[in-house]
Design a protein around this nucleic acid. Structure first.
Length: 500
DNA sequence: TGAAATGTTGGGGCG
DNA sequence: ACGCCCCAACATTTC
């Protein structure tokens, strides 16, 4: 579309930023910049949303950093980010009225609550003669564009992903707008405007974010650097390395995608491009599959909400999950006595992130060994992960718990010792996050309770004091889970019988 | 994107 | 030499 130079007297176009905190490949911003109207960029923070989920602590921390970066990037181009505070619909409508905006645009969201809000904002604005334009900035395929032959949403990942990739190339990522004419927000527009620090997104007393600061650089520029580093150093060995938590062999792009510091289209095409440069097709395919799981999660979120509350497979509604605050606490703190699980939970607490292989083991441990409701684990991850989003987090928990679409079968129970021996054979990962075990030999570091007394003494490990014994016996917990889950399957069968 | 139990096979020790 | 047993090693089945 031709770009017209806006005159200062013209009414502005509002770009409502949400989880798309970048300038490049941002369809709403690109549209606005070329619209002939001066552009005003806003972000709305609602600390107590009515229906939607309030962000967790780690996400709030990243959000602060990311918004600061976005504001700086806009400022470098002569503009800035206006941060607004309060219920989204009310805030946007007020801001539009006060600035006399003629158009509002944004990139679409996919949870039921978000869609409800966006639809309400859109119709309210339209009723007042204000144009609204929305775009896809977050996904390769929006959920309603992928269906079975019968027009139904997919429920199996393999079939979904085949269909989503078939005969289809995502839009090419676009560069940031060359020039943006910004609208100067008048002095009198003060209601609902906040300085970023006043949102109080960052923890103060206590300040638990030190590990996050040490681990992450947030925002679009840092995301681009991480992407380039991944392509250069890690992608080629991804197929094998991704399962080794002691190696830095995953992309670590999840939080950048969560906040839209990177667009998935940028990542997609960067990986494909790297694939052409060398014989690493297997690794690239594995990586693209992971992007596929992210797409599938949004597909489920859109079609089967509320994903974080309701079992996708409703027969699990009858599951008698244990209510056991002390066990939950031990799991959260990383004091289960199973080194791989504890290492993961401590990495999570310290860095706001956990290696994917370990996420599966730690999640499985809560659900199957402790027989605790997956929603309790999902809530903890929601609060502690910097990459927690409304789709992937609950979808992945339901997958592990066996309650989800295309989920792991109920009898698939990880043995945390075997998983440790298989994927952390030298104990690098455990030694890093459970330092009190660091001096144990490789052979016993995944199961210190099986170590010789002399080994424990030599490593200064006092079981039950410096490190706990296993909080449940694996063999016993496994049998218990199988019985409970098997009974659940059986009761469903009886219901079906009596109905027939 | 498991693990454990069970079944099968084949080499080697031994009477 | 032969049958028998043991038991890895591997395959299959079951949870």
């Amino acid at each position: 579309m031709p770009s017209r130079s806006p005159r200062p007297s013209q009414p502005p176009v509002v770009v409502w930023f949400r989880d798309d905190q970048r300038l490049a490949d941002h369809p709403a911003l690109e549209y606005a910049a070329a619209s002939g109207h001066p552009v005003v960029c806003v972000y709305v923070y609602d600390p107590e949303p009515q229906d939607a989920r309030a962000p967790g602590g780690a996400v709030r921390w990243w959000l602060h950093e990311s918004l600061r970066e976005l504001d700086a990037a806009l400022a470098a181009r002569g503009g800035g980010l206006t941060v607004l505070y309060g219920p989204e619909q009310e805030v946007i409508e007020t801001f539009v009225a006060q600035t006399g905006a003629a158009k509002v645009c944004w990139n679409r969201r996919y949870s039921a609550a978000q869609r409800k809000t966006d639809a309400a904002v859109k119709s309210a604005l339209k009723a007042r003669g204000i144009e609204v334009f929305t775009f896809n900035g977050h996904l390769l395929r929006e959920p309603w564009t992928v269906t079975t032959r019968g027009g139904q949403p997919f429920q199996v990942f393999g079939a979904y992903w085949r269909a989503a990739r078939h005969d289809y190339a995502p839009e090419l990522p676009r560069p940031a707008p060359g020039r943006i004419e910004f609208f100067r927000v008048p002095e009198h527009v003060t209601s609902r405007v906040k300085a970023l620090p006043d949102l109080k997104l960052q923890p103060c007393a206590p300040d638990w974010a030190g590990g996050l600061r040490d681990t992450w650089q947030c925002g679009e520029e840092a995301g681009q650097r991480r992407l380039q580093q991944f392509l250069a150093d890690t992608l080629a060995g991804y197929a094998i390395g991704r399962d080794t938590p002691g190696a830095q062999a995953t992309s670590r792009l999840s939080p950048y995608l969560r906040f839209g510091n990177l667009s998935v289209r940028q990542v997609w095409y960067a990986a494909l491009e790297a694939s052409r440069a060398g014989p690493i097709a297997a690794s690239v395919d594995k990586f693209l599959d992971e992007l596929g799981w992210r797409e599938f999660s949004y597909h489920l979120l859109y079609h089967f909400a509320p994903l974080n509350r309701v079992n996708f497979r409703r027969q699990f509604d009858a599951m008698p999950w244990r209510d056991d605050p002390e066990s939950l606490d031990a799991w959260q703190r990383g004091t289960t006595g199973y080194p791989l699980v504890d290492a993961g939970m401590r990495e999570l607490w310290h860095t706001g992130w956990m290696h994917n292989r370990v996420r599966m083991v730690a999640a499985s441990f809560l659900v199957k060994h402790l027989l605790m409701d997956w929603r309790a684990g999902e809530a903890w991850f929601w609060d502690t992960l910097v990459d927690a989003d409304e789709a992937s987090n609950p979808a992945s928990w339901q997958w592990v718990a066996g309650t989800g679409a295309d989920a792991a079968p109920y009898f698939r129970i990880f043995n945390p010792v075997l998983q440790g021996q298989k994927f952390d054979p030298e104990g690098d990962y455990v030694r890093r996050w459970v330092p009190e075990l660091a001096r144990l030999p490789d052979a016993s570091i995944q199961a210190p309770w099986l170590a010789q007394r002399a080994q424990l003494e030599a490593a200064s490990v006092r079981l039950g004091e410096s490190y706990p014994g296993p909080m449940v016996d694996h063999q016993h917990a496994r049998t218990r889970a199988l019985q409970a889950l098997h009974a659940l399957q059986r009761s469903r069968g009886e219901q079906a019988d009596s109905a027939a």
